[in-house]
Design a protein around this nucleic acid. Structure first.
Lengths: 133, 133
DNA sequence: GTATTTGTTCCAGTTACTAGAAGGTCAAGG
DNA sequence: CCTTGACCTTCTAGTAACTGGAACAAATAC
């Protein structure tokens, strides 16, 4: 099938699918007219990547996952390790964001938000310290 | 002072400071020998940006915050609005990450992680559905 | 007087696409 | 047969926010 169909089935924009080919992630055959010709297998792999990306895996991780996907003999431990690492990574990001949020909320709470120039947020950014919470 | 000193005081790498100049964020004077010459005010602004970046503000937001910082007549409401928007943004990211984590944890829990090829994580990525939690 | 550090510029690479231009192909309608 | 429009092709460049490295100049240390 053509790239447009592959795009519909996989849920990825054609542009992205072409990009994935350019980095050798999923490479289709070519039809006689030069058009990309996606097999069902190709489309499955595109969907696979789409899902993995939406779960936060990087392209390089997707490449690895794809090779495991293609390998009937893979050990599930290999895949599980990737998943667990990703979970750790996500947890770290969450903690970081929560700490950002706490700090910003504290600053915003102290800011009157009126039309006067006095602003604790700017003061904090400028290096002053906030005394109470 | 030279860029190295400015880097120490602001906590930013020299490379980054040069980059900030290249995008007209903080532009120092030049000394006779062509070296960048940072004033205290410049260094304060660099520190300001460093802190704002670490709080998750984008460069363009930093540019705006800097202009508010430089403007003695700004209204604190302007700054507060930025901060509140950023808090919302952070909250959305946290929710998204938590949902990713939940999904991945669920998948990992179902994966034995042994040397057998049977792997629910791959199955899910490939489009199969998981039935229980 | 040389060696080392610190500074300069400029170019390229990173991540994962996305936009747009210029042009080829194909199916349908008149 | 021709045109129209949808779809396809390639290529270049832009995004965000730096980071690394090369090649060379200036300042400092011994």
């Amino acid at each position: 099938m053509n790239i447009g169909q592959a795009a519909q089935f996989s849920g990825l924009p054609s542009k992205t699918i072409r990009y994935y080919e350019s980095i050798d992630l999923v490479v289709p055959d070519r039809a006689g007219n030069g058009y990309r010709d996606y097999s069902e297998k190709d489309v499955h792999q595109l969907s696979f990547v789409q899902r993995a990306r939406s779960l936060g895996f990087s392209i390089e991780e997707c490449r690895l996952l794809l090779s495991l996907y293609r390998d009937d003999q893979r050990a599930s431990a290999d895949v599980k390790r990737l998943a667990l690492n990703k979970i750790d990574e996500i947890e770290r990001k969450i903690l970081e964001l929560q700490s950002l949020k706490t700090t910003l909320s504290k600053l915003a709470k102290h800011c009157q938000g009126n039309n006067k120039p006095d602003c604790p947020i700017i003061d904090d950014l400028a290096g002053s310290t906030i005394t109470s919470n």
